[in-house]
């Protein structure tokens, strides 16, 4: 097991370098740089500024400079925000994480429960209703769903705030603060759960149907075990194996920021600044954040593999 993990870790290193090169090239080769976007600069001033920011250096020098900075643990300095990238991400990352984590917990719980119930009685009225709802929720355009929820719950009923993370001018701390944030979270979380739960429910249902058809399940039933035990202990455990890989993929999603949902609900998440920095060509932020997501994707995969190996000895042998 230890060599397995070690092998996977070593394998991730060239992957990271490859990712960093790719990320650098994608952004550096996009037409226009941080200075080009300013329509009002005289050519002389633009040249002065490019030199100040080092944008006049050749590509390889810029890449190596960035890489050595990274290896020293420095994510760089945002051109646009004029603060260290780590500070900037810190301001927005955790609100995205909070939103994503709460939604994740909710839609995994919901999907598991509903998916299992639907699989146990396939093609029953319950299964059919679930399928209908799931497809309805999945096929809603995000922005429309957001606006609909805002119209109903914030404007017409006035129960919940239209957007933001805290009330205007609020100086609340402690529990009051937590309650305030929770109130503001209800609608965005509801949106994310509705959007994500659909696909996952289908996965769980399919995986569970496969598991229920396994020989071990038939054996368990033949042994005369109660149906509850058969389903929860024998079938569900087997059904969860393929879902572990899926859970691994969720890791980068926890930090990536739900761009559309965050934007519409004015949630101070990292999705906003990602888009803004792309428009402004704020390279240090763009590259560091994208690299962070790449690292999380690799780590997520690694974790999924290790967890699968722990849960299923057959994988370890390979």
């Amino acid at each position: 097991m230890r060599t397995y993990v070690l092998r996977r870790l070593l394998g991730a290193i060239p992957l990271l370098f490859g990712a960093s090169l790719l990320i650098f090239l994608v952004f550096a080769l996009t037409p226009g740089d941080f200075i080009d976007g300013n329509i009002n600069l005289t050519p002389q001033r633009a040249a002065e500024l490019k030199a100040l920011y080092g944008l006049d250096r050749p590509l390889w020098a810029r890449y190596l400079g960035w890489l050595s900075q990274l290896l020293h643990g420095d994510l760089g300095f945002s051109l646009q925000h004029q603060i260290p990238v780590s500070t900037l991400l810190g301001q927005y990352l955790w609100s995205s994480f909070l939103l994503a984590l709460v939604s994740l917990l909710l839609y995994w719980t919901l999907s598991l429960a509903v998916g299992v119930l639907a699989a146990v009685r396939p093609y029953s009225w319950f299964d059919r209703v679930v399928t209908l709802l799931v497809f309805a929720a999945m096929s809603f355009p995000v922005f429309f769903l957001c606006l609909l929820l805002i119209k109903w719950f914030a404007v017409d009923l006035g129960w919940l705030p239209v957007g933001g993370m805290i009330s205007i001018g609020s100086n609340a701390t402690g529990w009051d603060y937590a309650l305030d944030v929770a109130r503001h979270m209800v609608l965005p979380v509801l949106t994310l759960v509705m959007l994500q739960a659909g696909g996952l429910t289908r996965y769980v249902r399919a995986s569970m149907l496969d598991a229920l058809a396994m020989d071990c399940v038939r054996t368990a039933r033949a042994k005369g075990l109660p149906e509850r035990v058969v389903i929860l202990r024998h079938a569900l455990r087997n059904a969860l194996l393929p879902l572990i890989a899926l859970l691994g993929f969720e890791l980068p999603g926890l930090f990536a920021g739900a761009i559309v949902t965050e934007k519409i609900f004015n949630w101070p998440g990292v999705g906003h600044i990602h888009i803004d920095t792309l428009a402004a060509r704020d390279y240090p932020v763009l590259m560091s954040f994208t690299l962070l997501l790449a690292v999380l994707t690799i780590v997520g995969n690694l974790l999924a593999d290790v967890l699968s190996a722990l849960a299923d000895p057959r994988i370890r042998l390979r």
Binding site: T30, G32, A279, R281
Partner: peptide
């Protein structure tokens, strides 16, 4: 996008 436009 605007930045690319100005660069071109």
């Amino acid at each position: 996008d605007f930045n690319a436009l100005l660069a071109k």
